[in-house]
Write a protein that binds this DNA or RNA. Structure first.
Lengths: 116, 116
DNA sequence: GGCGTTCATTGACAGTCGTCTATACGTTGA
DNA sequence: TCAACGTATAGACGACTGTCAATGAACGCC
């Protein structure tokens, strides 16, 4: 994950100085790290999760609020949340029994910057 | 594909009036269309292709220029180009023997707008 | 017309991914 | 300490995806 973060930052900020986006050829390693991050978002269930969390009060939600709207089983939702968390897009915080998830906006902004 | 384009536009522009991005819950259909578009980009080879084309003179390139830098077979590169073209991200133009590909910037901008 | 070149398509195969059921884990309250 | 609840993990299975070798189709040139 740290490896991915670094690679994305490199693409956004440029190897040394100036922002590049996709304006410069991509090394295979960098491309793979970037693709891995994009794959985390490129799933309908995970997009729905992001939208649900982002539009929840306080921009956070617990699993119990997310399972039913998605129409998927609890383990499946948990799996998707893990993928997003591992990618650094979501933040997990335990409060007693519940796991609360919030979005890391900088991470999504990085992605958007790369694409453009 | 037209269906995908419409769904993405809906997410960018909002159901009726105002831009939403992911700030509003996503219908499954919309999420699937969006995911399909993201999947097209979420591949290392295709990211490299986009970067190569974008950084080529005139922001266009033919297959013969793309196969070697990627280190993949010609059919595989052709496959990836088809995926990007079908997603509306690339534009294909035949000139005699050669196929030239160029990027559709608005399409990438739409994607970036949705993510943010 | 025949041939070489460039690209697209087909078919096959291994690997990955999304989903589920079953089960384990951790926390809370009695 | 134990039971109940919310969540995470493991294992299995079908579907999709990326890749290649082989083949086909379109075009320009001799």
């Amino acid at each position: 994950m740290a490896r991915v973060t670094q690679a994305v930052k490199a693409v956004v900020a440029g190897p040394a100085c100036c922002p590049t986006g996709l304006n410069t050829p991509l090394e295979r390693d960098t491309a793979e790290a970037l693709a891995q991050l994009l794959k985390a978002v490129a799933d309908p269930a995970r997009l729905q999760l992001l939208a649900l969390i982002k539009s929840s009060p306080g921009a956070e939600a617990c699993v119990c609020d997310l399972t039913e709207p998605l129409g998927l089983s609890q383990p499946t939702v948990s799996h998707h949340l893990k993928v997003l968390t591992d990618a650094g897009i979501l933040l997990r915080e335990r409060r007693g029994i519940w796991s609360w998830f919030s979005i890391v906006p900088e991470r999504l902004a990085e992605l958007a910057a790369v694409i453009n």
